[in-house]
Write a protein that binds this DNA or RNA. Structure first.
Lengths: 157, 157
DNA sequence: TGACATTAGTTGCATTAACAACTAATTTAG
DNA sequence: CTAAATTAGTTGTTAATGCAACTAATGTCA
């Protein structure tokens, strides 16, 4: 027994290809970019723009900050993406009466039309991505992802 | 029965928070940025730089293209990261004798020393990230991720 | 052998993202 | 009531990323 490097620790082996954060990252990149390319081609929307619209479909009248929280997208990116969507008349906004710092943002009619086209498309994509798993496996995966995320949020390295 | 929107299709519902590509994306971002921050703080290395070093630890003498394939990082990023690692004397390279376009890249002694410090750290991080799952669940997750990735690579939207 | 295509790696450029500083409105405390 | 702190949103700056053009070397095939 020499020092702290016992046989359990020896020169420990890292195989990038099997490293979980790496694998999550490449899986996520692949799925996101598949979907992103489709939205870009069909509607000229980036993932960020689409996610904002998705939140507004669920939560009409949300503020920029609420959108930032729901999408996990940094608020300066939200601000610029909102400008773009406003210019394209996909969303509209008004200043909140109760709090003049806030804005209430909504899909326009055009925006809602686009939204209504993308929703079924994105659900179909999700289904295809998950098509290699049984229903039970899908449910399990979903649970595991939730737990991993809850755990990851608490961690601090 | 009005138009094409039957009850089966109705205005289908998308809940971003439950949408798999989104959830994968935020989980992956969280885990990667946890790890990234640690490498940045402790060794001044970005994830890209670290992944290159990780590949070289596994595959000494790899070429830039091989590194790009193993890390899934675009080759221009690899090229620039390699320049940086060369400047910092963490890696070294020589032109391949058989094919003068290729380079053979290796960790320097310094680089290997850093590598040897990061490997156990990164394994510990992985363990902590997975600590919320049982061994069986970890194995299952691993399998599901593999299958999802294989499937995702084949898909085309 | 010699044109043509392919491959390895580098560089330029345009887009995206992250981070901090800033303005304006609101809330909190004394 | 007012000074200080907080919050919503915007903007500037810099770094990271992605794509495409480019050079140089090699491979292909008539």
């Amino acid at each position: 027994m020499s020092d702290k490097n016992e046989n359990t620790t020896k020169t420990s082996l890292l195989i990038l290809e099997r490293y979980l954060p790496y694998r999550l990252s490449i899986l996520s990149n692949r799925t996101s970019s598949l979907v992103a390319q489709s939205y870009k081609d069909r509607f000229g929307l980036s993932i960020t723009q689409w996610r904002i619209m998705a939140v507004l479909g669920e939560y009409p009248g949300a503020s920029a900050d609420e959108i930032s929280a729901k999408t996990q997208i940094e608020k300066s990116l939200i601000s610029r993406a909102i400008s773009n969507l406003l210019n394209r008349n996909l969303i509209q906004r008004q200043i909140s009466k109760e709090d003049k710092r806030r804005t209430k943002i909504d899909l326009t009619e055009t925006g809602y039309d686009v939204y209504s086209q993308i929703v079924p498309l994105s659900l179909k994509y999700e289904e295809q991505i998950l098509s290699c798993l049984s229903d039970d496996e899908q449910a399990l995966l979903s649970e595991l992802i939730d737990r991993l995320y809850v755990n990851a949020v608490k961690l601090q390295f």
